[in-house]
Simulated scan of single mutants.
Amino acid sequence: MIRVLVADDQAAVRDGFAALVDAQQTMYVVGRAATGRESVDLARRTSPDVILMDIRMPKLDGIEATRIICTDPALQRTRVLVLTTFDLDEYVYAALRAGASGFLLKDTPRAELLHAVEVIAGGEALLAPSITRRLIAEFASRRDPQHPSPQLAELTDRERDILLLVARGLSNAEIAGRLVISPLTAKSHVRNILRKLDCHDRAGLVALAYENGLISPGDQP
């Protein structure tokens, strides 16, 4: 069963998402939060698999709440799915860099939202890579890539190759096929890359790759 925490300052939205999740046989709601601070407190008490996180909330916004949750060692298995009204939202980009696993629009069809929860809970693939990469590319293009992150120097040549494939949206299985290695080896490499680059999830790797000029908008998988 997938344990879900719903965080949104609008009661109708919060209750709607919670009812949708609770109606499924494979997931259930462990808590509802009306503020960012409540989402952090409830996450620490309930250890959810996935948090549906609104960005604009009182007392602590979704960005800072995401950062706190994603850097808490006790919540390393918790994944954050950002929900927003706008698909090119500067705050969403900040949330992805803070550790969120991906984002969806609030008017996303129900079946798509439920599938997203399953994908995020599985921790395998970057959610909606075409949309997420477009968002990351938009805001990363405003940064100066002349000063690459020093952690990149810690990567081996193979890890650098895999980072580029992750940034292009390939799953572990697809990376394994491309490099003729086992899916388990690909997963191990991705885990090491996440550790070396201090990223919580694959979305963070995509953002870092764009920010450092390793990949550009329009690059093909």
Rank of each mutant, 00 (worst) to 15 (best):
S130T: 15
A125Y: 11
N192K: 15
S141Y: 11
V190N: 06
L75A: 03
L88I: 15
V190Y: 08
L96M: 07
E118Y: 05
L163W: 08
V119C: 04
Y93W: 02
V80E: 05
Q76Y: 12
F103L: 09
A186L: 09
P183S: 08
L113K: 05
R168P: 12
R191Y: 13
L135Q: 04
P129V: 03
F86T: 11
E124G: 00
T108I: 13
A125G: 03
A74M: 10
P109T: 07
A121I: 00
I162C: 05
D144P: 12
S130E: 15
A167L: 08
S188A: 15
L163K: 02
Y91F: 14
A121K: 00
S188I: 08
A137F: 07
A176E: 05
A140Q: 03
I120P: 05
I136Y: 00
T185C: 12
P109L: 09
E138D: 10
P183Q: 03
A140Y: 01
L81A: 04
R160S: 12
L113V: 07
G122Q: 03
D107S: 11
A186V: 06
R178Y: 14
S101K: 00
I136T: 09
E174W: 07
S141Q: 13
V117L: 09
V166P: 07
E118A: 11
I162F: 09
A98T: 05
G122T: 04
D161L: 12
T108K: 03
T156I: 01
I162M: 10
L179I: 10
V82T: 08
H189S: 11
N172W: 02
R97D: 14
E174L: 10
E124A: 02
L104A: 02
L83F: 08
R191K: 14
D89Q: 09
D87T: 10
P183C: 00
Y91Q: 12
Q76R: 13
G99H: 04
Q76V: 11
P150E: 05
V180C: 13
V180T: 13
L88P: 00
G177P: 06
F103G: 00
H147N: 13
P183M: 06
I120E: 01
I136P: 02
A116V: 08
P183Y: 04
A121G: 00
L127F: 04
G123M: 00
A167C: 05
T132Q: 04
D72C: 02
I175F: 08
L96H: 08
E159A: 06
Q76I: 11
Y93Q: 09
V82G: 03
E90Q: 10
A100L: 02
R77I: 01
D144T: 11
A116Y: 07
A153G: 00
L155E: 06
A176F: 01
A94H: 14
L114I: 11
T85A: 15
E118V: 15
L104C: 08
L88V: 14
D89N: 12
V117K: 01
G169P: 08
E138T: 14
P150V: 07
P109Q: 06
R77A: 12
D89R: 03
V82P: 01
L83G: 00
A173N: 14
A173Y: 11
L126M: 14
V92P: 01
P145L: 01
E118L: 07
I181S: 07
